[in-house]
Design a protein around this nucleic acid. Structure first.
Lengths: 220, 220
DNA sequence: ATGTTCTATGAAAAGTTGTTCACTGTCAAG
DNA sequence: CTTGACAGTGAACAACTTTTCATAGAACAT
């Protein structure tokens, strides 16, 4: 796909965010005000560019009427399965995958108060690939978190942040990503599997928290 | 919630369907043309009524700009009365269901190339996950699907498609989106709640399937 | 009877919105 | 050094859209 410029990506992001928040598209003048353009034509040009590059479809003459292309693609994606090879028998094997952001704009039954789009929209704001990652999804392999309602095959949404005691975190240990509950006891930090067959705590020294597990997605 | 008149419900349905299909709201004239009103003011009055009854929020002066009240979301499903106005023989056949998913999705360049609408960069290499571009999420309110593992507060991912017998579908009934299991018995179609407290089947004859529930997302 | 709500028409006004024209400038590629 | 893509200003226009006004019949409850 043709590359978007910084401004074009910013405008597209704003439009998506506006739809997510208000459930309807912004007008050209809304965008103009947001980016402090002195002319509506500045926006107009960007929208034309976005349409020419195939990421946005305008409906000529119609107000606040757009469609977003179903793809702002990261092309060089290679499948990777994280295999656990260390001594910890309880470590989950996690497969990283793209967060699915396929939420059509202006959906019915969405309001700003629902909170649904906020959850879903967060990872979408990182449409620019150069920005640091925000949230992501991990597919769970293994059963060491079944007592927390996380089964093998589920997809866990990981968001950045400082974990509190008791949070389920994605942690990088020995180069492997594991999903466990973070337990602080005094100055010590443990990772705890949520499976009564493996109740013991695992003390760790060199720990990299990748994020906090906020929600789990299960196939029906 | 105050009861909607038949016309009001029909207009609200159309508006939701329009958003689901086009990703932007219809204008008053769009609605006028759909219902063959001779005056835009007919629509205007209905929209005012819908707003007064709290199911729709208009943004004064703005074009194609609305919000639907959260009360119109999947609320307590047990309270929903499914209108049944014909003899049982007239119950919908599965093949004749009005399916909203036949959407000219997005732009031609990206219809089939990738199922990912938007991505973010995972901390590791990521594998893409296919996903229909017109899927969306609904937050569930109510407990009538708890036996299917769908609790109040969960977010259900709805994907377009032709539902098979036994699928859990999001259906638009009387302006309300409901989540129930689709049951076909002979030539009749029922919606079934997955709660043993409400085991009976609900025959329906005016049904719009918005999509099939594929997965459920739970907060941790 | 009477007031209210729902429904609808028809025209016009008022405001919003998309679009076009003319013009200027930067920057990287060929 | 020219070409093309990108970014922007400013004004004006055309179109679209909402909103208001005046008017009125049907259904319904008080």
């Amino acid at each position: 796909m043709e590359e978007l410029t910084k401004k074009q990506a910013a405008i597209l992001d704003y439009m998506k965010a506006h739809v997510a928040e208000h459930s309807y598209w912004p007008s050209i003048r809304d965008i103009q005000a947001k980016f402090r353009f002195a002319s509506t034509n500045a926006v107009f040009g960007h929208l034309q560019a976005l349409e020419r590059k195939g990421v946005l479809q305008r409906i000529p003459g119609a107000a606040r009427a757009y469609k977003v292309a179903p793809a702002a693609i990261v092309e060089d994606l290679s499948d990777i399965v994280i295999r656990y090879e260390g001594p910890d028998e309880n470590a989950l094997q996690l497969e990283s995958l793209n967060y699915l952001g396929a939420i059509p704009a202006g959906l019915p039954d969405y309001t700003e108060s629902s909170g649904v789009l906020d959850t879903m929209q967060a990872p979408m704001s990182a449409s620019s690939r150069r920005r640091p990652p925000q949230s992501f999804a991990l597919r769970v392999r293994g059963d060491s978190m079944i007592d927390a309602g996380i089964d093998s095959g589920d997809t866990v949404i990981i968001e950045p942040g400082h974990p509190k005691n008791g949070d389920i975190v994605a942690a990088l240990i020995d180069g492997e990503t594991t999903l466990k509950r973070l337990i602080k006891q005094g100055t010590k930090v443990y990772l705890k599997a949520e499976n009564q067959n493996y109740p013991e705590l695992h003390p760790v020294n060199d720990l990299v928290i990748q994020g906090i597990a906020k929600s789990v997605m299960k196939s029906i």
